[in-house]
Design a protein around this nucleic acid. Structure first.
Length: 195
DNA sequence: TTCCCGATTGTA
DNA sequence: ACAATCGGGAAC
Protein backbone atom coordinates (compact mmCIF):
# COMPACT_ATOMS: atom_id res chain seq x y z
CA UNK A 1 0.00 0.00 0.00
CA UNK A 2 1.33 3.33 -1.04
CA UNK A 3 1.87 5.89 1.69
CA UNK A 4 0.71 9.37 0.79
CA UNK A 5 2.34 12.47 2.15
CA UNK A 6 0.76 15.89 2.34
CA UNK A 7 3.33 18.56 3.00
CA UNK A 8 0.85 21.44 2.98
CA UNK A 9 -1.14 19.72 5.69
CA UNK A 10 1.95 19.33 7.88
CA UNK A 11 3.00 22.94 7.32
CA UNK A 12 -0.39 24.15 8.49
CA UNK A 13 -0.11 22.32 11.80
CA UNK A 14 1.24 23.97 14.93
CA UNK A 15 5.02 23.72 15.33
CA UNK A 16 4.86 21.07 18.10
CA UNK A 17 2.69 18.91 15.83
CA UNK A 18 4.69 19.59 12.68
CA UNK A 19 8.18 19.11 14.15
CA UNK A 20 7.99 15.31 14.59
CA UNK A 21 6.22 14.96 11.26
CA UNK A 22 9.05 16.67 9.38
CA UNK A 23 11.52 13.97 10.46
CA UNK A 24 12.54 11.84 7.50
CA UNK A 25 11.65 14.51 4.94
CA UNK A 26 14.46 15.44 2.62
CA UNK A 27 15.60 19.04 2.50
CA UNK A 28 16.79 19.94 -0.98
CA UNK A 29 18.99 22.98 -1.45
CA UNK A 30 19.67 24.22 -4.98
CA UNK A 31 22.77 26.33 -5.47
CA UNK A 32 24.72 27.43 -8.55
CA UNK A 33 27.41 24.97 -7.48
CA UNK A 34 25.04 22.03 -7.31
CA UNK A 35 22.28 20.35 -5.37
CA UNK A 36 22.51 19.35 -1.72
CA UNK A 37 20.12 16.89 -0.15
CA UNK A 38 19.76 16.14 3.56
CA UNK A 39 17.39 13.87 5.44
CA UNK A 40 15.94 15.76 8.39
CA UNK A 41 16.80 13.75 11.53
CA UNK A 42 16.39 16.28 14.37
CA UNK A 43 13.94 19.15 14.90
CA UNK A 44 12.71 21.46 17.64
CA UNK A 45 9.40 23.30 17.90
CA UNK A 46 9.04 26.96 18.93
CA UNK A 47 5.64 28.59 19.33
CA UNK A 48 4.22 31.91 20.41
CA UNK A 49 3.18 31.01 23.96
CA UNK A 50 6.67 29.63 24.48
CA UNK A 51 9.00 31.98 26.41
CA UNK A 52 12.00 30.40 24.67
CA UNK A 53 10.68 31.36 21.24
CA UNK A 54 11.75 34.42 19.26
CA UNK A 55 8.05 34.95 18.53
CA UNK A 56 7.08 35.14 22.20
CA UNK A 57 7.04 38.95 22.39
CA UNK A 58 5.24 39.45 19.11
CA UNK A 59 6.40 40.08 15.57
CA UNK A 60 9.46 42.23 14.89
CA UNK A 61 11.42 42.86 11.72
CA UNK A 62 13.54 39.82 12.42
CA UNK A 63 10.77 37.45 13.49
CA UNK A 64 8.06 38.53 11.04
CA UNK A 65 8.47 35.34 8.95
CA UNK A 66 7.43 33.24 11.95
CA UNK A 67 4.02 34.91 11.79
CA UNK A 68 3.46 34.14 8.14
CA UNK A 69 1.50 31.20 6.77
CA UNK A 70 3.37 27.89 7.15
CA UNK A 71 5.70 27.06 4.29
CA UNK A 72 8.20 29.87 4.57
CA UNK A 73 11.73 29.89 5.90
CA UNK A 74 12.92 31.72 8.98
CA UNK A 75 16.70 32.20 9.19
CA UNK A 76 18.27 33.98 12.14
CA UNK A 77 21.79 35.04 13.11
CA UNK A 78 22.99 33.95 16.54
CA UNK A 79 25.99 34.45 18.84
CA UNK A 80 27.47 36.89 16.34
CA UNK A 81 28.71 33.89 14.41
CA UNK A 82 26.07 31.41 13.26
CA UNK A 83 22.93 31.07 11.19
CA UNK A 84 20.05 28.70 11.94
CA UNK A 85 17.29 27.50 9.62
CA UNK A 86 13.62 27.09 10.52
CA UNK A 87 10.53 25.98 8.63
CA UNK A 88 7.58 28.22 9.50
CA UNK A 89 4.35 26.35 10.29
CA UNK A 90 0.77 27.13 11.27
CA UNK A 91 -1.72 29.72 10.02
CA UNK A 92 -0.84 33.32 9.24
CA UNK A 93 -0.74 35.34 12.45
CA UNK A 94 0.58 32.60 14.71
CA UNK A 95 4.28 32.92 15.50
CA UNK A 96 5.76 29.47 15.23
CA UNK A 97 8.47 27.55 13.45
CA UNK A 98 10.42 24.30 13.45
CA UNK A 99 14.18 24.56 13.92
CA UNK A 100 16.05 22.11 11.69
CA UNK A 101 18.78 20.91 14.04
CA UNK A 102 20.45 18.11 12.13
CA UNK A 103 20.50 16.33 8.80
CA UNK A 104 21.82 13.10 7.32
CA UNK A 105 23.72 13.79 4.09
CA UNK A 106 22.05 12.17 1.09
CA UNK A 107 23.45 14.03 -1.89
CA UNK A 108 25.96 16.77 -2.63
CA UNK A 109 28.29 15.41 0.04
CA UNK A 110 31.45 16.75 -1.55
CA UNK A 111 29.94 20.22 -1.78
CA UNK A 112 29.02 20.03 1.91
CA UNK A 113 32.54 18.90 2.79
CA UNK A 114 33.85 21.93 0.95
CA UNK A 115 31.38 24.26 2.68
CA UNK A 116 32.31 22.86 6.09
CA UNK A 117 36.03 22.33 5.55
CA UNK A 118 35.82 18.89 7.15
CA UNK A 119 35.40 15.39 5.74
CA UNK A 120 33.69 13.37 8.50
CA UNK A 121 30.21 12.76 7.09
CA UNK A 122 28.73 12.40 10.56
CA UNK A 123 29.72 15.96 11.44
CA UNK A 124 28.63 17.74 8.27
CA UNK A 125 25.19 18.71 9.55
CA UNK A 126 24.82 17.37 13.11
CA UNK A 127 23.86 20.73 14.61
CA UNK A 128 21.69 23.68 13.54
CA UNK A 129 24.56 25.97 12.52
CA UNK A 130 26.60 23.14 11.05
CA UNK A 131 23.61 22.34 8.88
CA UNK A 132 23.35 25.88 7.51
CA UNK A 133 27.12 25.91 6.92
CA UNK A 134 26.82 22.66 4.98
CA UNK A 135 24.02 24.18 2.92
CA UNK A 136 26.11 27.27 2.19
CA UNK A 137 23.81 29.65 4.07
CA UNK A 138 25.97 32.62 5.18
CA UNK A 139 23.32 35.31 5.66
CA UNK A 140 19.63 35.81 6.39
CA UNK A 141 18.58 36.45 2.80
CA UNK A 142 16.44 33.33 2.73
CA UNK A 143 14.46 34.42 5.80
CA UNK A 144 10.85 34.99 4.80
CA UNK A 145 11.21 33.16 1.49
CA UNK A 146 8.59 30.60 0.52
CA UNK A 147 9.83 27.01 0.14
CA UNK A 148 10.74 26.62 -3.52
CA UNK A 149 12.55 24.32 -5.90
CA UNK A 150 14.71 27.32 -6.75
CA UNK A 151 16.17 27.63 -3.25
CA UNK A 152 15.06 25.16 -0.60
CA UNK A 153 12.31 22.58 -0.89
CA UNK A 154 11.13 19.46 0.94
CA UNK A 155 10.66 15.99 -0.54
CA UNK A 156 8.71 13.14 1.11
CA UNK A 157 10.58 10.60 3.27
CA UNK A 158 12.31 7.78 1.38
CA UNK A 159 11.35 5.49 4.24
CA UNK A 160 8.37 6.03 6.47
CA UNK A 161 9.03 7.33 9.98
CA UNK A 162 6.58 6.01 12.57
CA UNK A 163 5.86 7.13 16.10
CA UNK A 164 8.07 4.43 17.57
CA UNK A 165 11.04 5.69 15.51
CA UNK A 166 10.93 9.10 17.19
CA UNK A 167 12.73 10.16 20.37
CA UNK A 168 11.11 13.08 22.23
CA UNK A 169 13.32 15.14 24.55
CA UNK A 170 13.92 18.63 25.90
CA UNK A 171 15.35 21.38 23.71
CA UNK A 172 19.02 22.30 23.52
CA UNK A 173 20.69 25.57 24.44
CA UNK A 174 17.71 27.43 25.88
CA UNK A 175 17.33 28.87 29.36
CA UNK A 176 13.56 29.21 29.52
CA UNK A 177 10.87 26.53 29.24
CA UNK A 178 13.63 23.97 29.60
CA UNK A 179 11.23 21.21 30.59
CA UNK A 180 9.11 21.41 27.47
CA UNK A 181 9.48 18.22 25.43
CA UNK A 182 9.72 19.83 22.03
CA UNK A 183 12.83 18.26 20.57
CA UNK A 184 12.33 15.39 18.18
CA UNK A 185 14.91 13.08 16.64
CA UNK A 186 15.08 9.77 14.82
CA UNK A 187 16.08 7.09 17.32
CA UNK A 188 19.58 5.68 16.91
CA UNK A 189 20.34 7.92 13.95
CA UNK A 190 24.06 8.65 13.68
CA UNK A 191 23.67 12.19 12.39
CA UNK A 192 21.87 13.93 15.25
CA UNK A 193 23.56 16.76 17.18
CA UNK A 194 26.20 15.80 19.71
CA UNK A 195 24.71 17.58 22.70
C1' DT B 1 21.22 55.42 22.57
C1' DT B 2 23.32 52.08 25.58
C1' DC B 3 23.78 47.51 27.15
C1' DC B 4 23.14 42.59 27.68
C1' DC B 5 23.09 38.14 25.92
C1' DG B 6 21.69 34.47 22.82
C1' DA B 7 17.47 28.18 19.55
C1' DT B 8 26.29 27.38 18.68
C1' DT B 9 30.68 25.75 17.46
C1' DG B 10 35.50 24.71 17.61
C1' DT B 11 39.48 25.05 20.31
C1' DA B 12 42.15 25.13 24.80
C1' DA C 1 35.92 25.64 30.13
C1' DC C 2 35.77 29.55 26.93
C1' DA C 3 36.33 32.84 23.16
C1' DA C 4 34.46 34.42 18.78
C1' DT C 5 31.60 38.36 17.26
C1' DC C 6 27.17 40.68 16.03
C1' DG C 7 22.55 42.55 16.12
C1' DG C 8 17.94 42.37 18.28
C1' DG C 9 15.33 44.26 21.58
C1' DA C 10 14.64 45.75 26.42
C1' DA C 11 15.75 49.41 29.37
C1' DC C 12 17.18 53.87 30.39
Amino acid sequence: MKTSYNLTKILNLSAPEAAPRLLGWELVRSTPKGEIRLKIVETEAYHQADPASHSHRGATTRTAPMFEQGGRLYVYFIYGVHYCLNIVTGPKGSGEAVLIRAGEPIDGVELMRKNRSITDIHKLANGPAKLTQALGINDTKLSGEVLSELSISLKPPATKITRSDILVSSRIGIKRAVDELLRFSIKDNKYISGV
